[in-house]
Simulated assay, not measured.
Amino acid sequence: MSSSALAKTQMRGLLAKRLRFHIVGAVLVSLGAAAFYKFAVAEPRKKACADFYRNYDSMKDFEAMRKAGIFQSAK
């Protein structure tokens, strides 16, 4: 009598059901991580590089390094 009160365990399709749930979760987490990286790391890095090279004078930098004695061939 007490055994009929217990619910039957699901055996068929259990793996597929759990995989579907976990795959959807993994896709959502990975998309969130990719969006976070893009907007928190990649975009500020691109902006910083663009700002640096907007006013960068390579000859002025070369002269400063030459005067500091970094180069052996340019005196």
Score class of each variant (00 low, 15 high):
71 F>W: 15
62 F>M: 10
72 Q>K: 15
22 H>Q: 09
32 G>K: 07
11 M>Y: 08
52 F>I: 08
60 K>D: 00
20 R>V: 07
15 L>A: 11
63 E>K: 15
18 R>V: 12
17 K>P: 04
8 K>L: 15
48 A>Y: 00
25 G>R: 12
38 K>Q: 03
21 F>D: 06
11 M>S: 13
68 A>R: 14
35 A>P: 05
10 Q>M: 14
8 K>I: 12
30 S>T: 14
22 H>F: 15
16 A>Y: 04
33 A>Y: 00
29 V>M: 10
35 A>F: 06
2 S>C: 08
53 Y>P: 08
64 A>K: 13
12 R>Y: 08
74 A>M: 10
62 F>T: 05
64 A>W: 00
58 S>M: 07
69 G>F: 02
32 G>W: 08
70 I>E: 03
74 A>E: 04
34 A>C: 09
43 E>W: 05
59 M>G: 00
15 L>Y: 10
71 F>M: 11
68 A>V: 06
6 L>Q: 12
61 D>M: 03
8 K>F: 07
49 C>W: 07
47 K>N: 02
52 F>C: 04
53 Y>I: 04
55 N>Q: 05
72 Q>I: 07
31 L>T: 10
50 A>V: 06
19 L>E: 13
11 M>F: 11
75 K>S: 13
6 L>D: 03
46 K>Q: 05
21 F>E: 10
33 A>S: 04
53 Y>K: 07
34 A>R: 07
67 K>P: 01
23 I>N: 09
17 K>F: 14
58 S>C: 04
17 K>I: 10
45 R>G: 05
29 V>P: 06
63 E>P: 01
46 K>C: 00
5 A>N: 08
50 A>S: 14
61 D>L: 04
14 L>M: 11
30 S>W: 05
50 A>H: 13
23 I>T: 13
22 H>M: 11
70 I>S: 01
65 M>I: 03
75 K>P: 10
10 Q>R: 15
42 A>I: 01
48 A>Q: 03
51 D>I: 01
67 K>N: 11
36 F>N: 07
56 Y>F: 13
57 D>M: 03
62 F>P: 01
29 V>F: 11
57 D>H: 05
8 K>R: 08
14 L>W: 11
74 A>N: 02
36 F>T: 14
2 S>M: 09
